[in-house]
Design a protein around this nucleic acid. Structure first.
Lengths: 214, 214
DNA sequence: CTGCGGTTGTGAAACGTTTCACAACAAATA
DNA sequence: TATTTGTTGTGAAACGTTTCACAACCGCAG
């Protein structure tokens, strides 16, 4: 079903996420099928782009009709690997960490936070949405024997590399990092960075170069 | 100093953000100059990319020596428009909103949250880091006569379009949206989306397609 | 069964970004 | 001054992504 990989670009994967959400909305609006034209219009993309993105993984549409909404949504979920649930651990329950524990969108897509770590004695042992915060010093041992597949890092930049080293040592292969720093990980570990200030900086740049841009 | 714009790509701007942070660290480590080679190595980029990115805006380096750390940092701050402070309003003090109010990285780069809105009666009037939460119904009037330049939207998807319409009506030209939905804004308004689930989905995809990728 | 309007899937063209490769130059050394 | 080492700035090549354009096909109407 899912075609042999011929190196899918990052942009394509990100657009799949977008299509996934759009299709969920369409389903709620009782659409049965959707054309690449309309889907593109809704998400400010081009029809050709929608079709090409999907064609990397198979042919899911019907000529003359478009794509079946629910079926395509499920297909994309399968491609992205969100047709299942993932066990996630969170390191750091400061501002951002706490927000993530309650972030509905994670849960909705099957990302379940099952362990929380912090190095602040006042937080260790406390309860966040039913999870007892563990000591960050125990990361390696606690993760090694767990079923955790993805670790989210929401600690200050200064300690982030230390934490990530532990996480790698525990055998974790996928890390989402919120610290605004470039972490070093071995080649076989997937690392993604989420830096919320960067988008604000982009806005700042846009405002400063206004008339030139549009 | 800053060259005539010849359409700078999004990736280049994002890398400028990265250089900016790297240079700050280098300054703290007492580097006086840095070569494109070393800077690239630190941030897992290529030297040519560093040089080309910078060359769009001028020539800041010295052949044989490299780039002066502090001077280049300041130059990039000027290009990105973060050598000043920006007045920001936040709409929605739920999980994410509250985290953003205390998010140090925003303040550090000159993004100052000066107004907060919410539509929850229990939150209106409450105090977040010295700011009294206003009624979201008053967004248009409150923003119109304010000095707010950027609005951050951290409300549920269902109400996000309504809020953004008000924000646009108030004359705001730059919006950072955390709701996982594609908002519609006029062409002259800059809109950026921050979707934290998307990066997790990317990790999920990577794990599912592991052996094929690396 | 034929023809028509609509839409997909995809090779090829167009476009954009990254990498290469080297002339130009700075500093240091002799 | 001449030579060597090191690094920038940049045009051009290589590469990657997006857009174009159209054959193939679906459903429907006559």
């Amino acid at each position: 079903m899912v075609k042999p990989q011929l190196r899918i670009s990052e942009s394509t994967i990100h657009r799949l996420s977008i299509y996934y959400r759009a299709l969920n909305r369409l389903e709620r609006e009782n659409y049965e099928t959707i054309s690449s034209k309309e889907l593109a219009k809704r998400e400010k993309l081009t029809p050709a782009q929608v079709r090409k993105d999907l064609s990397f993984f198979g042919s899911f549409g019907t000529r003359g009709l478009g794509y079946p909404v629910t079926e395509l949504r499920d297909k994309i979920a399968e491609i992205l690997g969100i047709n299942r649930s993932w066990s996630v651990a969170l390191v750091g329950v400061g501002n951002i960490g706490s927000a993530l524990v309650s972030y509905k969108e994670f849960q909705k897509q099957g990302f379940r936070i099952r362990k929380i770590f912090d190095n602040d004695q006042r937080k260790i042992g406390s309860n966040h949405k039913g999870i007892i915060v563990s000591d960050a010093d125990d990361i390696v041992t606690e993760l090694r024997d767990s079923k955790i597949e993805i670790v989210v890092i929401a600690v200050p930049s200064l300690v982030a590399q230390m934490i990530v080293d532990d996480v790698v040592r525990a055998g974790i292969k996928a890390i989402l990092n919120f610290a605004p720093i470039n972490l070093k990980v071995p080649d076989d570990v997937y690392l993604r960075n989420e830096n919320m200030a960067m988008e604000l900086e982009y806005l700042s740049f846009s405002l400063c170069n206004d008339e030139a841009q549009l």
